[in-house]
Amino acid sequence: MGFLQRLSNWFSQGGREENLLQQAVDLAKEKQPAEAIKIYNELLRSQSASSILKARALFNRALAYSSLKDDQRAAADLQTLVSSNDAPENVRSAARTQLVRIRNRA
């Protein structure tokens, strides 16, 4: 996401939440998954976040837990996504794939 897009996102609630999600993803990429998880938790508690954004946050939180070797929490998040009717199919599909990887690792 470019600078101008991030800047314009600050003018809507949904945009601010997109920025937070991107901030968490960036933290996870910078090997700070615990900090990313705090932001994902905030997004998941949000009353205004869309179901799509929450599904993306839940999937990314699962990846962050997995990177911390907390496979139990990662699997729980992924299972929630797999069984969710609100999550987009591409997120559910990615969750199923990641769930298999985690179970094979264990």
Score class of each variant (00 low, 15 high):
S66A: 15
G14I: 02
Y65N: 06
S83Y: 12
E18Q: 14
L43N: 07
N90C: 05
D70P: 10
S48K: 09
G15H: 04
Q47A: 14
A57I: 01
A64W: 03
Y40E: 07
S83H: 13
Q47P: 08
F3A: 13
R96L: 07
E35S: 12
S46C: 03
R101L: 14
A106S: 13
E89C: 03
L63H: 06
K29T: 02
L78K: 10
F59L: 14
Q79F: 05
S93Q: 13
R56T: 00
P88H: 00
L44Y: 08
V91A: 00
I52S: 12
R16P: 00
Q47D: 14
D86T: 12
L4I: 11
Q72F: 01
E30I: 03
E89P: 01
V91Q: 06
R56Y: 02
S66M: 07
N104C: 01
R73Y: 08
S67M: 13
A24H: 08
A74C: 11
N41C: 09
E89I: 12
N60G: 03
A75Q: 14
M1E: 10
S93T: 12
K38M: 09
R92C: 00
A55E: 14
I39Y: 10
Q5F: 04
A34R: 15
K69L: 15
G14K: 04
N41Q: 09
S84D: 07
L7A: 14
A95Q: 06
M1G: 15
S46H: 11
V25Y: 05
V91Y: 04
R6A: 12
N9I: 05
W10T: 15
L20A: 13
R16C: 03
R56V: 00
R105S: 05
D71W: 08
N90P: 13
I102M: 10
R103E: 10
I39R: 12
L78V: 11
Y65S: 05
A87H: 04
R45A: 14
I102E: 09
I52T: 15
